[in-house]
Design a protein around this nucleic acid. Structure first.
Lengths: 200, 200
DNA sequence: CGGATCAGGTGACATCTGTCATCCGCCGCC
DNA sequence: GGCGGCGGATGACAGATGTCACCTGATCCG
């Protein structure tokens, strides 16, 4: 019997998956979490064989939760994401995640993937893997990503500079560089593009 | 036997819901759609008793699909949404939707709601209904919403003006008005806020 | 040691943006 | 007809933003 933890902030999907997986003879759901902190806590508590984590989860994303769980337990981890991009896949694999599944995957297929990963194999969605091999990697530096992240809410230069503890002029330079790399004309367009690509 | 159409662009959730609802003795899923256009087409084709539509669905949102279906068929409609805000609820009810369910609702509860609505009753999530009665309504005009929608991708004034077929100066006026109403200092912050509130 | 490189910062300049007062044409209405 | 309200547009102005050249310390390496 494979013991599962399921974490997704969307109750409807999480409960539906839990119910469906519970119907399988060899799977059982021992814990459900709706936040990344709960996911880590419940993983320590229940020590599941495998954790299915949503990537987009407050307060920290699923990748952070995955890293914390992997640091403490031998649990295998499958990341599920709505917005699957090659950049995210790279980071996930680097963190030691064993399965990477976009939410375009039918629920029925998930049970098979869980068995595969629990059995020691890895699973990466073929479409995303192909993209990751052909598409360009993220051209932005860590600093550039940081300022772009800070400007997603529509913040002004001075607000961004306060958030990242840099001089306003420096922030403008980083943003200017990022805009040039992404081929757009404003920091907001740059932030939007970077988000679309899964880089922030 | 209640015949259902299920439409959601997220395959994982749609397939999971379809599988779970199909397990109920009195429910059967006669069609699944992943786009709003498919939803309308399949509704005409299969004439389901009830359609469960996701609100966030390309190319037009679920509300448009709901309106089209309601204009052509006696089908009852339940809207499901990830980002449930009072403003959206108002628009949905005005369009003739009979059920309004956020994705924070557990999947098991959905079957009961479907029976209720199929039986002629209405269902509105209590939390959202309460918010809708207490919270302020959207203070923005249709035009203001339009320009804010167009600037969500980080577009410049001239790009927005091209998209909405207005003079650049007029666009600036609308944006200025929207920013004043929302109490923010840039159009991007205004767009972000309006999105958070579920107004665009 | 001396140069190369790089993160961070500064200042000047051209544009873009946001604000505001104002104007025009259209519609409804007393 | 006259009048006001309204959607749309214009123009002037201040401040924010993007660009670019260049400076300052670290740090690394031959």
């Amino acid at each position: 019997m494979i013991r599962l933890l399921i974490a997704d902030d969307e109750d409807m999907l999480r409960s539906a998956l839990a119910a469906l997986l519970e119907l399988e003879d060899d799977l059982t759901v021992v814990a459900e979490a709706s936040t990344s902190t709960d996911a880590v806590r419940l993983a320590r508590e229940h020590r599941p064989d495998l954790a299915v984590l949503d990537l987009e989860m407050p307060p920290a994303d699923g990748l952070h939760a995955a890293a914390e769980i992997l640091a403490a337990l031998p649990t295998r981890i499958i990341l599920v994401t709505r917005h699957a991009r090659p950049g995210v896949l790279r980071r996930a694999l680097a963190a030691g995640v064993r399965g990477f599944v976009p939410k375009t995957t039918p629920a029925a297929r998930l049970a098979e993937i869980i068995r595969d990963v629990a059995g020691g194999r890895r699973y990466v969605d073929p479409d995303i893997a192909a993209s990751a091999l052909t598409e360009d990697d993220c051209p932005l530096t860590e600093r550039e990503l940081e300022v772009l992240r800070a400007c997603r809410t529509g913040a002004s230069i001075s607000e961004i500079s306060a958030q990242v503890h840099l001089a306003p002029g420096t922030v403008r330079n980083y943003l200017s560089a990022a805009m040039a790399k992404l081929g757009v004309g404003s920091r907001h367009a740059a932030a939007h593009r970077a988000w679309e690509e899964g880089w922030i």
